[in-house]
Amino acid sequence: MSVEQDKAEIFVGRLWNNPSLSGLSPLQKEEQLLQFLEINSGTLQPTLNSPAFFPDYSWSRILELLKQSLSDFANKSLSPLYEAILEKKMDFSFTVHMAHRSSSPSAVKNQLGGFLNTLSGRMNSRKELAGPLMGVGTGMIDRYMERIFKRQKYISFELRKVQRLKMSSNEVTDLVKATMLIRPSVQFFAPGGQNSGSGRNLLLISPTFAGKVASEAGKTLSFMPYAVVKAGVNSALSFQDNPYMESTARLAAVFSHRCRNMKPGMKVDRGAESSDKSWFNVARKNYKFYGFDLDMLMELHGIAAENGW
């Protein structure tokens, strides 16, 4: 490792461990710091061009060094995170209840682990992984799914009666988690997937494009039941335009959006609503924009309100 890389690592390390970013997931930290470096380039450039840092380097070269170092920091945290999520937060026994390509749950898990590494190799899909990882890693999906099945209302009905998921509640929960983790494949296969971040996010896709992405993702995730891969990709469709999309896809869309910028342990100010309740209420107002299922949002908002989440 060169002296410059050492310096970049020290600088990024200080940013990475800054207390203001505590509680964020590695991908959230990475995204924030990438934006931070880009936004504040005018202020950072003179300091980083000083003799103490990189006196003979151009700003673009410095930025490249810092981004590489930042990516290394995130990757160091990501691998154990994937492992922890797949080993401790999920169970793939739901696959045995679905039509699939005769493989064991552990094979599905290993293949998904590799797929997550592939997704995190491209910037846009890597960014999209932030929400699913946060949702699965923090146990938020488990909390909500437990309440959903306890209530036996709209979402439960959609999962059990409409999508006809004949499996235990825990297995449905794991199915939703897997759907969420597959969802970033849309960004992975989208044109311009290597873009570094600025520019408009890809919010919704067309059914034709979804079909193509599902087909490609299905090839990579050959052990995963195709219905799960398809639901993961379909989660980027608009529910208003595609009223027959899977309820797991609709849930995955809502939860992924919710968790993308979620800050666990966020202090709720006096006079403010709780974090989840606020988010679901705002999402209710924007449901058409994001293509969410309004009835699902209503129920999730109710759950958040009942439990003070």
């Binding site: 800054n18 970013l21 880009e38 600025s198």
Partner: peptide, 25 residues
């Protein structure tokens, strides 16, 4: 929220230059 989702140019950041003033001297 809609504006934030369309604009990924930053601003919704938890870290600011003040947080690294010691680093920048």
């Amino acid at each position: 929220e809609r504006n934030n989702s369309e604009d990924t140019g930053g601003g919704a950041l938890d870290i600011s230059l003040d947080d690294i003033s010691d680093l920048l001297g």
